Simulated assay, not measured.
Amino acid sequence: MTSNHSITQEPLVSVVICSFNRENTIFQTIDSILSQQCDFFFEIIIGDDCSTDGARELCLNYKQRFPEIFKLVFQTENYGLGKNWALAVKEARGRYLAFCDDDDYWHNPNKLQMQFDFLEKNKDYGMVHTEIDLLVEPQKKIVKNNNLNKYIPQGYLFYEIFKGKVPICFSSSFIRKDAIDKYLPLDLYIQHCFNIQDWPTWMFIAKHVKIGYLNISTTTYRTGHSSISNTNSKKKIEEKLEKDQFMYQLICSYFPNDLTYNEREYILYKLGILLNFAYKQNQYRSAKKYACRLKNLGCNNLKVKATTNIFLFKLVRFLKKNRAILQYM
């Protein structure tokens, strides 16, 4: 951090980190934020969701070293990502908010300055995100500029985000605080213990403000390791899908003139996730069950067709697995 400011000075940017049992990675997250080269003062707010490893002690150590920068919000019970995040955001004092998950990090030391300059110059935009690199676990492979050859739309993106057509990495995002204050119902995240914070935030924000994109990689997103979206527990996946469905319904009800909840569409999505999990776990009988339901709903893609025969199932599983490995070599 390249500025000397009084500890009484209000920060222009608040950086929010949500922490839960990531003592092996959160230090890299924090160090990458402290390494930012910018001409303004920023604060770092860490919302820890009742970690049981050494993450809290690590955060306390940073607080002792940099008391003017860090604010720690330690939950007394495990609330889940969405509620923990919302409670941390409520503590933010900055004109802008940036976010970095506790398993990601910023490899570009100019990230905050570039995004700050963009929103200061473009008053009609309320948010900006950037290009990212991938860190693929367990191979430890870095994939540079993951979205470089993709078309990333900008502007008013409400419907595009709803349809999943805008790849936004949460750890690369930068948002005006007044847009959050005006349009983001944080109390909903807290009341309903949202299991995620990114997609609903994009929906609430995108309805009212333009979203920009910088084709410069600033953030390394860790993938392939154990996380909310990557687990070997079928029970956890089913619980997440149930919460996702509730959130999907809630968002649709929040914008009744713009969105309509589609039960069939969500069932197709849910069965697709469970079919992929069955392939990943080499569970042929489960895959066949999900594929049968998908076929009855009119879906007959390659993974569905391959469940008609165990040898085809294993072949498709092998090809998918090895294609994923080759992609990151």
Rank of each mutant, 00 (worst) to 15 (best):
Lys163Ile: 00
Phe99Glu: 01
Leu250Ala: 08
Arg317Ala: 08
Asn146Gly: 09
Pro67Glu: 01
Tyr105Thr: 00
Thr8Lys: 15
Gly272Ala: 07
Phe41Pro: 01
Arg264Cys: 09
Phe255His: 01
Tyr189Ser: 02
Lys288Ser: 14
Thr76Lys: 11
Ser6Cys: 03
Tyr79Asn: 08
Thr231Asn: 09
Lys240Leu: 15
Tyr290Gln: 07
Gly224Trp: 03
Cys18Trp: 06
Asn230Thr: 05
Tyr221Thr: 03
Pro185Asp: 00
Tyr213Lys: 04
Thr8Leu: 15
Arg264Asn: 12
Tyr290Ser: 02
Ile251Asn: 06
Glu238Met: 12
Phe313Trp: 02
Gly80Phe: 03
Asp31Glu: 13
Arg56Thr: 00
Glu57Ser: 14
Asn215Ile: 00
Gln37Thr: 07
Cys169Glu: 13
Ile175His: 05
Leu97Tyr: 10
Leu294Ala: 09
Phe116Pro: 02
Asn262Thr: 02
Lys236Val: 03
Phe162Ile: 07
Ile251Cys: 04
Asn232Gln: 13
Ile26Val: 14
Phe40Thr: 00
Asn24Phe: 00
Ala179Glu: 10
Tyr254Trp: 14
Asp117Arg: 06
Ala88Tyr: 06
Thr231Ala: 12
Gly212Met: 01
Val89Pro: 05
Ser229Glu: 06
Thr307His: 02
Asn195Gln: 13
Gln139Lys: 15
Asp31Ala: 15
Gln36His: 08
Ala278Val: 01
Phe118Ile: 01
Asn24Trp: 00
Leu312Glu: 11
Val13Ala: 08
Gln197Ile: 05
Leu297Gln: 07
Asp103Phe: 00
Asn122Lys: 15
Asn122Met: 09
Lys83Leu: 08
Ile152Glu: 03
Asn4Ser: 13
Tyr269Glu: 07
Gly80Glu: 05
Glu238Phe: 04
Leu241Thr: 01
Leu275Ala: 12
Glu23Asn: 08
Asn108Ala: 06
Ser229Thr: 13
Ile196Phe: 12
Lys63Gln: 13
Asn147Trp: 13
Thr8Pro: 06
Gln37Arg: 14
Ile180Ser: 09
Asn232Gly: 15
Val209Asp: 09
Met247Val: 14
Asn145Arg: 12
Tyr62His: 04
Lys303Pro: 04
Phe42Pro: 01
Lys243Arg: 15
Asp258Tyr: 06
Phe99Thr: 00
Ile237Lys: 09
Gln283Cys: 12
Phe116Lys: 15
Cys100Met: 10
Thr52His: 07
Asn4Ile: 11
Asn276Tyr: 10
Lys140Gly: 07
Gln115Thr: 01
Asn282Trp: 02
Phe246Val: 02
Cys169Lys: 09
Val89Arg: 05
Phe318Gln: 09
Asn282Ala: 13
Asn296Ile: 07
Ala92Thr: 11
Tyr213Asn: 04
Ser19Gly: 10
Thr260Ser: 15
Ser32Val: 00
Asn282Asp: 13
Lys182Asn: 14
Leu157Thr: 02
Ile211Leu: 10
Phe204Gln: 01
Thr260Trp: 09
Ile211Asn: 05
Lys240Asp: 11
